[in-house]
Simulated scan of single mutants.
Amino acid sequence: MSAVQVAVVIGRFQPFHLGHLALVREALARAPRVVVVLGSAHQARSPRHPFSAAERAEMLRLALPEAERARVDVLPLRDLYDETRWVQAVRDGVQWLTGTDEALLVGHFKDATSDYLRRFAPWQLLSLPRQHRVDATDLRAALFDSEPEALDAVLASWVDQVPPSTRDFVRAWAHLPYLAALRREWAMLKSYRQAWAAAPYAPVFVTVDVVVQCAGHVLLIQRGRDPGQGLWALPGGFVEPRDTLYQSAVRELEEETGLRLLPDTLQRALRGVATFDHPDRSQRGRTISHTHHFDLGERELPEVRGQDDAAAARWVPIAELAAMEAQCFDDHFHMLDRFLGLVAPG
């Protein structure tokens, strides 16, 4: 393997554990400069994404001695739910930080979710065996399954799985106003999955979501229950057994926002339908959304109100959406981006 000036490590680091640290240290041993790509940046907090990009960057920083910190750059990167675009975004980000398009990618093939490591040719790839018997999913489960008074016991069980600095960080983080809501949502999702555990095969859920734009605004609802209670989302829901996709989209729109328009008005306003089917787009399980895009044109904003599963409904200026990314449910910001072009290419 030829000498390189830049090594790259990619991960979500939720939380940062000893396996992650081993990859970063191997990268530091191979190159004078290391870029750590923080995946799933800008996601709303959830049991899958409890720690913000800034918090994960701090966990990484605290785990390294000062001399090594100076050699590490952190690149937060949003999920794009499109592997080709995402790989190019990683490459572009590394080149922007380092000035070179050559790098050594250091990683571990954990399971099928690690196949993206093969997509970075002509970068060199250093595939390492598993460094520690630790999994971030299990660490999060231990944290969310425990009672508040058991926090010290949970962190003690992490002693051979995470750096001491990560335990200290999570101990302090647990006193911020996030953990109780995450535990509640975790319990809901766990119950949801258990309800389907007896199915003869893994369920695949079919849903609809609706993008309605009007006079420079888009219609959003604020979710009234878990998962994602309090987050902003598109109106939508599950397809009923006797509905077509279009019928389900119109029904969910009316049920959650009270928006009622003449059938011909909606039909003329339909601009397209896109399918969102990334395997990891929903914490509830494999969920495929058929998202309908309506443009009502330049007219007075119709009256709406939150009802059914929606705590609120409002017309949001499209110009304000980019600042709301971390407040959006699941991949709904990326649905909006698909139709409205919110994120500049590259």
Rank of each mutant, 00 (worst) to 15 (best):
Q14D: 05
L219Y: 09
D160C: 03
A29I: 08
R314F: 02
H293P: 00
Q267R: 14
V212C: 10
L128Q: 08
D160M: 07
G346A: 14
E147D: 12
T100I: 08
A136Q: 03
L77D: 12
W196Q: 11
R193P: 00
A199I: 00
V36R: 01
H42I: 01
R133C: 03
P227W: 04
A136R: 01
H293I: 00
L261S: 06
G19S: 10
E102M: 01
Q194W: 13
A322M: 05
D264G: 06
R45Q: 11
L139M: 05
A57K: 05
V154D: 07
F276M: 03
R61C: 02
F16H: 05
H42N: 13
F169R: 01
D295G: 04
F276W: 10
Q247H: 04
Y178R: 02
A311M: 11
P47W: 03
F333W: 02
W186T: 02
G258T: 11
V273P: 04
G306E: 12
K110I: 07
G341E: 14
V74C: 13
A233E: 11
R48F: 12
D160R: 14
R33V: 09
P129D: 03
D308W: 14
L64W: 13
E254M: 11
W123T: 09
Y81Q: 09
Q327S: 15
M59C: 03
A323Y: 00
R130C: 12
M59K: 09
V316D: 10
G236I: 08
D82L: 11
A172Q: 14
A344G: 09
V208P: 11
L21I: 01
Q247F: 04
R12W: 09
A7C: 08
R71M: 07
Q229T: 06
Q131N: 06
S127M: 08
P148W: 12
L296M: 04
D308Y: 14
R184W: 01
A7I: 05
H17Y: 05
G93V: 09
L97E: 08
L342S: 12
A198W: 03
D168Q: 15
E26I: 02
D73S: 15
V206F: 14
W158G: 03
S146K: 00
A322P: 01
